[in-house]
Nucleic acid binder design. Sequence first.
RNA 1: UGGGCCGUCGCCAAGCGGUAAGGCACAGGACUUUGACUCCUGCACUCGAAGGUUCAAAUCCUUCCGGCUCAGCCA
Length: 548
Amino acid sequence: MENGNHILTETGAFIHNAIQEDLKGRLNELVTRFPPEPSGYLHIGNAKAVYINFELAKIYGGKCNLRFDDTNPAREEGEYVKSIAEDIRWLGYDPQERIFFASDYFEKFYDCAVRLIEKGLAFVCDLTAEELRASFGGVDKPGTESPFRSRSVEENLKLFAQMKNGDFPDGSKTLRAKIDMASKNLNMRDPVIYRIARLHHHNTGDNWCIYPMYDFAHPLEDAFEGVTHSLCSIEFEDHRPIYDWYINNLDFEKKPRQIEFAKISISNTIMGKRFIKELVASGKICGWDDPRLVTLSGMRRRGYPPAAIREFLGTTGVSKALSKYEFDYLEHFVREHLAPVSKVVMAVLNPLKVVITNYAEGAEELLPLAFHNENDLGTREVPFCREIYIEREDFMEDPPKKFFRLAPGKEVRLKGAYFVTCTDVIKDADGNVTEIHCTYDPATKSGTGIEPPRKVKGTLHWVSAKHAIPITANLYDTLVLDAPDTESGVKENPSSLTQMPSAFAEPCLANATPSDRFQFMRNGYFCLDSGEGNVFNRVVSLKSSFKK
RNA sequence: UGGGCCGUCGCCAAGCGGUAAGGCACAGGACUUUGACUCCUGCACUCGAAGGUUCAAAUCCUUCCGGCUCAGCCA
């Protein structure tokens, strides 16, 4: 879409071909689904699946369901259901009334299992978990058949009903499919269909003490909902035979088809639920919405526009090759979306006081400045007076040859104001620069034209010391990690948050809202944090071609 | 090690028998009331490797080499 590199036209050919072939002339009958387990918050990797499923439905005029795959109460919580629905809407997709829960199908799953037993395709197995595991064999050795495999249909029916009624302790029996213990595909070695576990379910409470396994439940959920194409990630490729086995043996008229694609990941980030939970629990990050995370809620808080994420996702392509994107690539789309809507303002992150010695004490003036050069984002007036702050890094006592900014005896332009020349450097006992003195040239006032024309190499942003408002600027240079992009690296170096606690911004920032986007000149794009106080998050930084 | 999947520039990614798109990154240059933004320019005689088929291959065949993935009563 946005730049022509879209799944419709250039990628995911294997998905499109399959859909075209299966649905010849009836493409609007396409039904996809996004089936998250409510056991964590959505991150950029999950967003890819959201994007593909909803976009495909949109492209073909079909439908996309949001289905919570909540068949394991041990991991799932209502909190996650809420956050997932909210994050999907924020990303730009509205499932409306098409929100389903696998747990609403528990009764139907049970009926299907009974049907399998009646057909002689499932049996109740008394093997313990350890015995079962041992009997599965390994990648290079076949499994052994369960001694309970040949129970009669009647006995299986009776036993399974008793399992449901709670006559047996947790883990004492399972319902298993009767397929092939010698299959090269481990998933086909008489897989477990139901297990006994007295767990409280967020939706069904304590109604059930047996829960279906993913491999059994998922294809049925798809079939119940009329899903035509069940898109999942590539590690489920080995599960396709079992998916088809259940679909075929339960005689569904309309058979959904599973198609796999590779997940995406981003370097220098943590996406694993387990690791994020660890970080949250240890207090190293403030929650699933920590701006250093690539969770949707984290990116939202960080200030990423959802359209930028969608565009990023649109260019990532749908393939089976594993793809790990550099962080720069994601940020590129964020910058592109921020540039036209951000108000360009002045804020000094690391202040250095400048006294303009020949500017009258007590005098001040209001200088009009546009928020943006290209788009008409309005203007504001910026107060100017004798004492101002500039960026500490914009002054060097001993500048290298190509330093265009302020240095002793050098003249620069103050954005929207005057040319100033550095006359004195004030230091403390330790030799640290605490203040610098400048003189200004009244003839160089911005916008008045200078006669004779005079040019200056550098222009600096500044704020009036008297009028500026104090802010805290949060800089996040990488999300989560500086170092290794290994999941375990998180334990060593969880944070790349830098706070600039004594930053100052021009007065107009006092009215900022979290939905506003600002460009702090050379310092990057910022937005107001949704939390307390004047805290601004750096959404992304700009590239700097100034090298010392 | 057995099965499945994958291998095109530093990172992504088009291509699907007719002689290597594009984006990010990077490097030059132009412009500039910030060195940002914008705009130009450059950036794979080569498609994991080796053979073979063909007038012609990244695209077909064979073998080999790498990477990912699977042995939860998780999803």
